[in-house]
Design a protein around this nucleic acid. Sequence first.
DNA 1: ACAATAGTGTCTATCAGACAGTATTCA
DNA 2: TGAATACTGTCTGATAGACACTATTGT
Lengths: 251, 251
Amino acid sequence: MPYDPSAFPPFAVTVDLVVLTVRKHALCALVVRRGEPPYQGRWALPGGFVRAEEDLETAAARELTEETGLRSQHPEGQPTEAHLEQLATYGAPQRDPRMRVVSVAHLVLAPDLPAPTPGGDARSVRWAPVDSLFDGSDGADGREAEQAPLAFDHDRILRDGVERARSKIEYSSLATAFCPPEFTVGELRRVYEAVWGVALDPRNFHRKVTGTPGFLVPTGGTTTRQGGRPAQLFRAGGATLLNPPMLRPEV
Amino acid sequence: MPYDPSAFPPFAVTVDLVVLTVRKHALCALVVRRGEPPYQGRWALPGGFVRAEEDLETAAARELTEETGLRSQHPEGQPTEAHLEQLATYGAPQRDPRMRVVSVAHLVLAPDLPAPTPGGDARSVRWAPVDSLFDGSDGADGREAEQAPLAFDHDRILRDGVERARSKIEYSSLATAFCPPEFTVGELRRVYEAVWGVALDPRNFHRKVTGTPGFLVPTGGTTTRQGGRPAQLFRAGGATLLNPPMLRPEV
DNA sequence: ACAATAGTGTCTATCAGACAGTATTCA
DNA sequence: TGAATACTGTCTGATAGACACTATTGT
């Protein structure tokens, strides 16, 4: 099967984004409402075509900025605002009824944004708790989410992205990507609790994260709160891998 | 950025395969010699175009069978002969000098094959120790591997595949994919040692793998050897995730 | 003082790492 | 009986899980 670039089946290549954040103690994903067929009116993951001379990751970063205003690369030496990584590629022949489309899905972890839809065009965009988006509606609580499933195979892509995020914060310091530049141990713990959907022991969690070298760096500052001891502020350290990992309870 | 399938940049989509096995106590990858430009005469990963009505994983399985005769799907209820999973997608604009090619790389873990090149066409195919293939030639021993680097960005793809395999046998039972249907604890340990490039304590390894529920199932049989106590034979159990994981020494 | 949140100390069970000895085969 | 390989037992240090107390703020 030698390469024969003169005769190849034509494909369209897109990037789709699973953009996750933690809002109000719930893991949420960014979804956009489709304005045209197919799946008109249904919610879908943001995404778009890869341009002719554009790298895959560049295309994902561009779509991210267009949709949320977030930047995943360092602009002018500033710290990144979001983590972006490739997730997986989806290319079933009939996943788009119009033509053969191969979609390279990317995963974005972002801190909670002040404005829900800062940039981008005027389409309907929202953060939705991931439990309310899944087909099976296996939400944490009993009430079924009466909502049409996501367009295309985006339910599968979202599930894969959520599972990647859930497993990756076990053995990496990536949970800090859900936090603002400075955060407290309690805020970081609530990120873990929201992503995993479990309650963690505050004492053991504190010992674990502060005892792992390079995970957290104290900034010296403290929070100002109403009623309660001020909490120490940290920023993410240089360590990326956690050894030993943070164990997800779920047994 | 609404979908506009009538005007999209044309892409070719291929699958490339990182096929790994353990031979003579070394982790080896399958490489083919290119018979035409570009990179004529250089070694490359096996791969080929995805057909017009073909799923990505189907294309990868087809290429695998064409190259090695291995099957990754269950043929007629028989056990699989190799593990296949999607690895990552590579789509830099200039990765192929002829045109825009997006390659969906797949990772295959296979047991050592009796015949080096059972199926496929007559091209030059071989198993090569992965250390001898890497650009930097950071082989285990001192001797530099004087060999042209792999074609295209296949050095990067191979590195990613090897790293995936190395990390995945930590927390999954996937190392059994490198073994024949029945194997001994010592053979499984030598797989770990070859993939990680370290020596493991036989006693602790035996305790770990036999103590993890669902990892190994004794078949009742024993090996016949020359000089030495016969070893108990096992097959892979139903468990796929290892909890707690097998820890890679490397500290 | 009281509420509210942040942080610390201790015990225990589990497990990885280190190490030495016994068991079963063939020559 | 000796060589070769397979398997088992035990100690120790590190750590996760469970749990109760002290510390620092605002009201």
